[in-house]
Design a protein around this nucleic acid. Structure first.
Lengths: 218, 218
DNA sequence: GTCTATAGTCGGATAGAC
DNA sequence: GTCTATCCGACTATAGAC
């Protein structure tokens, strides 16, 4: 965010055409790759994902992904940091939104969380990160992120610890169900259908629309 | 669980000493390996774990682990199935327990969930499995397991969909915090301390005792 | 029932050209 | 800024002996 528009035409010694549609500023590429990484890490997890898969999803070569981020681990760190930034930004926007629709702040924030499903892989990637607590570097970053969300609820939103915990809990359940792809059994298994409906009371149709389904590649 | 005591001394053509402390019935080995696998998959996840790590944790050779379970994937499937069986068994025991302590069934079951922390890696492994929904074989198994837990709440315990959802949600939060190793920051970060306390109101001391900490190898 | 040796594959990272 | 070629370590799985 707040992209630093360095280069694009500047101190570079080369006179390459910048409008090929191929050569972008490394800042833009970084953003493209982060989008791809979010999706890939979301489906595969940190260890399961390959830098090559991310690269292909972003339309660049595998070594270039590594080159830009230094390592797969750094790429993952950048990815979850980005995800967290978006998450908190969405929460803040929801908190600040006018109440023209008569919804409470809590409802609006909950809604914002569900809406983030549209950002492919965001919830899943964060959930994966949260399970990596034993990894010295990723774990530490994940804990910081988790704590930041908690802080948002307590300090910015101003709810008490019990309410904050309930909020987080609902969030974890939603993330889990997305990662589980419970949608895949929606409709076929009455039990699952009920569970799913219980999680997304009002926004069901939209959610069903947006969620990736089983036909997608693993 | 109702171990099938096949062999141990039977149709085998060999006259090996069975009490070397080394050579066990494959049934016992399987169980040992499942215990090790639960711990390893719990910290590393499915892709992050190696069959070699599991083997060393169980005190056998890597090829033997593969030999006994056929493949890493099968080992993982067997591991989560075992975990689910234990989980539901604990829930059923809690549900059936006398109310001599004046606790409601809900409290007893919640307690049982927290107590399962003592089974190393159980919560973390299940949580990992739940995030693998996109994997055709593991995802399907994970969904079945998740649905089985839901069914327990709705049919055996008899609570309604909203209560069941709240239960699941709390459970997912607890699992997440264990996987995050939020304990590692307990005491040092006031925010985290509060969050942690909020999740384990009464059983805090015990939980702090049982949870693996940061010093453990990744 | 269990091991050692090893084949085979995959994937992250590096070198270096354009 | 981006690619191709490639090295090398890691890891699953197989072969086959004891």
């Amino acid at each position: 965010m707040t992209s630093v528009q360095r280069d694009g035409s500047g101190a570079t010694a080369l006179d390459e055409p910048a409008e090929t549609g191929k050569r972008l500023s490394s800042d833009e590429r970084r953003r493209q790759i982060l989008v791809a990484a979010l999706a890939v890490f979301g489906t595969r997890g940190y260890e399961g994902a390959t830098t090559d898969e991310v690269a292909r999803a972003a339309g660049v070569s595998q070594p270039y992904v590594v080159r830009l981020f230094g390592s797969k681990e750094n790429l993952f760190l950048a990815t979850i940091e980005d995800a967290l930034t978006r998450l908190l930004a969405a929460f803040r926007a929801a908190l600040a939104a006018e109440e023209d629709d008569g919804l409470t702040a809590a409802k609006r924030i909950g809604q914002a969380y569900v809406d983030l499903i549209e950002v492919r892989g965001l919830h899943q990637t964060l959930a994966h990160a949260y399970l990596l607590g034993s990894n010295p570097v990723i774990g530490a970053a994940a804990r910081r992120g988790f704590a930041a969300v908690w802080r948002f609820f307590r300090e910015e939103m101003g709810i008490d610890a019990d309410e904050a915990r309930a909020f987080m809990a609902e969030g974890m359940l939603i993330s889990t169900m997305i990662g589980l792809r419970i949608v895949d059994d929606y409709g076929s298994d009455p039990q699952i259908t009920e569970l799913f409906r219980s999680c997304f009371p009002s926004e069901l149709p939209h959610v069903l629309d947006v969620l990736p389904r089983g036909d997608e590649r693993w």
